[in-house]
Computed example of a mutant assay.
Amino acid sequence: METTPARRYGGQSAEERDHGRLLRLRAAALDLFGTHGYQAVSIDRLCSTASVSTRHFYQQFSCKEDLLLDLYGAITAEAYEAVGHSLAATGDDDFRRRLDAAVRAYLRPVLADPRTARIAFVEIVGVSPRVEQQRLDFRATIVALVEDEGGRAVDRGEIAPRDFRFLALALSGAINVVVHDWMRRPRRGSARRLEDQLCALAVHLMTGEAAPV
């Protein structure tokens, strides 16, 4: 039996139109949540900014929180992928250089856009138990990665054995608190300076060696 091809509007299939709406909603959420704050933005405003009807919004998401989780997931996936690429590219380097490069790969895309930093370090905190669980799940992924890299450095004789889980949690907490504070200051210092300071802290924590901050 011959099937009728799906109708196309404006040269796009239904799937392509849905994907386009998703990308526009993500872009609107990044701009509005990252500028005005998650709690201050309504679904109507998101839809108006994204040029998406509320009917199509609810075809994509059941509520505003789902959009926040989708956006946060995209931000963290990009950060994790950047760290993975960095570690792959520096596989033969000294642990200190690998760690410095990996932390920069994690921080740079987030700090480059204050809206992204605000969502990842400010707006995501305390929204709901479900959102908090996703934040903790991402933290656990990063902590496990740091533990693994620390263990590899010990096996290669680059550093002495340490409690890498404790240190990874301490580093994660420090990054969250410092970036949160940096974001909320009316007059922020440079993102590059903050990146340098946090990388120096990471090397100090993971190796026990003094580093200028």
Rank of each mutant, 00 (worst) to 15 (best):
S13I: 03
A14K: 09
G20N: 02
L25P: 00
A27Q: 11
A29P: 02
L32W: 01
F33G: 02
T35V: 06
Y38R: 00
A40T: 05
V41I: 07
S42Q: 00
R45C: 15
R45A: 15
R45G: 15
T49M: 15
S51N: 13
T54W: 10
K64W: 01
E65T: 02
L69N: 03
L69Q: 06
Y72F: 10
I75F: 01
T76M: 15
A79G: 06
E81W: 09
E81R: 15
G84Y: 03
D92V: 04
R96Q: 10
R97V: 13
A101H: 00
R104E: 02
Y106G: 10
A112N: 00
P114G: 02
R115W: 02
A117D: 00
A120P: 02
A120D: 03
F121Y: 07
I124H: 02
V131M: 10
Q134G: 13
R139E: 11
I142R: 12
V146S: 10
E147M: 14
G150L: 05
E158V: 12
F166Y: 09
L167A: 09
I175K: 07
N176P: 08
V179L: 11
H180W: 12
R187T: 15
D196M: 08
D196H: 10
L198P: 00
C199F: 06
A211P: 01
